[in-house]
Design a protein around this nucleic acid. Sequence first.
DNA 1: GTTAACAACGTAACCGGTTACACGGGCGAA
DNA 2: TTCGCCCGTGTAACCGGTTACGTTGTTAAC
Lengths: 339, 339
Amino acid sequence: MATLRDVAREAGVSVATASRAINGLGNVTAPTKAAVMAAVKKLNFVPHSGARSLTRRKTDTVGVILPDLFGEFFSEIIRGIDLVAHESGMHLLLGNMHGSTHETAAAIAAMRGRVDGLLVMPPDLKPELLSDYLDPALPTVLLNYDAGSLDLPFVAVDNYRGAYAMTEALLARGARHVVHIAGPKHNRDARDRQRGFVDAMAKIGGVRNPAILPGDFSEESGLKAAGLLLQGQLPADAVFAANDQMAVGLIAGLAEAGKSVPGDVMVAGFDDIPLARHLNPSLSTMQVHIDRLGSTAMMMLLRILRGETLGSASATILTPALIARGTTAMAAQAMTAQP
Amino acid sequence: MATLRDVAREAGVSVATASRAINGLGNVTAPTKAAVMAAVKKLNFVPHSGARSLTRRKTDTVGVILPDLFGEFFSEIIRGIDLVAHESGMHLLLGNMHGSTHETAAAIAAMRGRVDGLLVMPPDLKPELLSDYLDPALPTVLLNYDAGSLDLPFVAVDNYRGAYAMTEALLARGARHVVHIAGPKHNRDARDRQRGFVDAMAKIGGVRNPAILPGDFSEESGLKAAGLLLQGQLPADAVFAANDQMAVGLIAGLAEAGKSVPGDVMVAGFDDIPLARHLNPSLSTMQVHIDRLGSTAMMMLLRILRGETLGSASATILTPALIARGTTAMAAQAMTAQP
DNA sequence: GTTAACAACGTAACCGGTTACACGGGCGAA
DNA sequence: TTCGCCCGTGTAACCGGTTACGTTGTTAAC
């Protein structure tokens, strides 16, 4: 592989001049620049980004640390990040903590000297631990995580409000006994959604201790919830699952038992995964623009890297939108397919 | 940020000793090593990977260059790659060519000095162009691309065989007039699938010029194809879409016109996207383990990086499996839901 | 007692770029 | 003519690590 020295020798100039010519800096005559460029072509020289980033003290790369890479959720986040990063000529270095807390520290440490900034999504991590791992000198934006006590910039989804709105909508459609299928115990999103549900039930429905079934965000747990619902004597005319995956499982379970949705019971989910609108009947849900989560975080990071101060923009909260589809259609509408 | 020299000074040793102690090389007394480690802790020193990779001449990173990041297909590939990469302590640097050929060159060039090897998925690129862009010194494995004349290792899906098998299955189920919805003209996958269809129709069905409708792998183009099918006088008792997305659009279009699937017409797709089994009726398709595409390629790259020669293993072809579901169920089975 | 061998550690070159500073020449102004 | 300035270019230090090689001190072998 040709180095800058090779190019300089070939062009009969010094490395400094060669570097300046290649990078288009001033103070280089047209003929010398041409000579250098000719040498570049001839040796097909490509600058060594690693070496360059060492002196420039910037890598044009941001590290993205995610808890996992499974499913459309993470892929959408990455796409959103890439969209913005690409515009600014930034590269993405992927770090996967594979669920383990110990690996989180390793993943973050491995980023030193490779990236200019970090985008981190710490799923169930305690804030104190997180601040231990993080390098204060490395600009960092948190993904889908309300920093709380830490003064790190973050972008998150307003899960509480979303769940509140969905519960309200179910009640408005005439449901009296709404059952919630919760997500994983320690998951922040899941907990916020549950809180929203409980509060809405209390304030709007006047119900103190609404029914809550356990779940873990997986389709299987939705199926299980259907079983519990059917065999139990729980009165239910609507079910609000903490995410779409569980709603999908739930609907499958209900269908198997001959229950009609929304005729016998309305169903709602959260996330608006692509599958939601293809179900039959289509699934009502809270739409979260997952890609915006990534792109917003990336834009914040870019601003920090440019030296701007975020101020109040250092905490961005995305509000999900209610998407009413077939599974919560009123009786009269139940027959008309809604695409 | 503390550097190695800071650590060495703090511990009262030379940089060489500090480096050896940190990296666990021999020839360091226990007490000196302890002193160095204490200094590391005190200054919380983290080695600068960029600088390290400069001398070591390896980065422990592989570059992944994809045409896009949209949808489950790419996310599954990345996940497959990460699975294997992670085991070997490798990092992933994402490069997105965003569909443009010009950016492909830039994306590849930008990898110089950042990665030890490359995983490239060149969708509609001509082999000659590709070899121009690629650096012969950088180990490269092609994703979902039959290198053909180039002697680059690759892993691909046997689209021809898959399409052949699916067409055969449709004919075996009694279909006489099978219509194909093709993918994008210049896409290799699409062309191979079409060839498989045409050949199977000729050899098994005895049909010379089977009906082929245009498409571009998008759901909309499937919907359009349904329109063409319905208004035309084309006889059709089965439709084989070149991918699942189009099949989904097609089914929606048929349902809107009151056509029954599989009663009036059978439908089959290709890819087995997660959505396929959730449709009603569920979609018959060719299952491709997309994540294996990524993990296999990564394993090949790792072997090359270890200095092994791949030999005949330098070309891996994954064979998709037929998944028969509801949309191709025989008349008798048409009533029973197949999960 | 001398020497060879080896273990522990230090010095400095090097990876491949960038860039501060030095230097020489051409030109305008006094 | 001489001085000063600026422009184009070269020299060398530097980024933060690794490592070849040299040095010192200890021990085993003669």
